[in-house]
């Protein structure tokens, strides 16, 4: 095995460990938010590590370019995706696990007096607005 292959396998192994952590977390953690936390990490880092590792086993120029674009997009969108789901869960009143310290959330609720997170109060407009700025 060449040095490059060894590096590739180490990266793939790291990615698989991150994935396994998310899998165990998804089964074991007590509420949606902890599960979303585990998945957010795995989605970004796990895919990035596995993809970089895989492309090193067959490093043609075309593959390297595609993998680089995929990794950048993955890191940018995966975490945002988890945040979107978590934010929707907060806004729709999904319960936190018993024992969660929510002082700041309650304060924020009182301060905003029912204004939902990140969006203006009042009826929802038909189209989505200001997605980029509100994440």
């Amino acid at each position: 095995m060449s040095v490059l292959t060894v590096i590739a396998y180490v990266l793939i192994l790291a990615g698989v460990v991150v994935f396994a952590g998310a899998g165990v977390g998804l089964l074991k953690f007590r509420d949606t938010y902890m599960r979303a936390s585990a998945v957010g990490t795995a989605a970004g880092l796990g895919i990035a590590l596995v993809t970089i590792g895989a492309v090193l086993t067959m490093p043609t120029t075309a593959n390297l370019v595609k993998a680089a674009v995929a990794v950048v997009l993955q890191l940018a969108t995966a975490a945002v995706g988890s945040t979107i789901i978590a934010r929707a869960a907060v806004n729709s009143g999904h319960a936190f696990a018993p024992g969660t310290s929510l002082i700041d959330l309650d304060e924020a609720d009182a301060k905003l007096a029912g204004m939902p997170l990140t969006e203006e109060s009042g009826p929802r407009p038909s189209g989505e607005t200001s997605e980029g700025s509100s994440v």
Partner: peptide, 29 residues
Amino acid sequence: LGTFDLVLIATLVSFLAAVSARGLMGGRR
């Protein structure tokens, strides 16, 4: 060869899936 094309597309589709999943959760706080 060509799996990385699939990965690129899947990355974007999964983001759209997360965005639309938000709409399915209903009720607002």
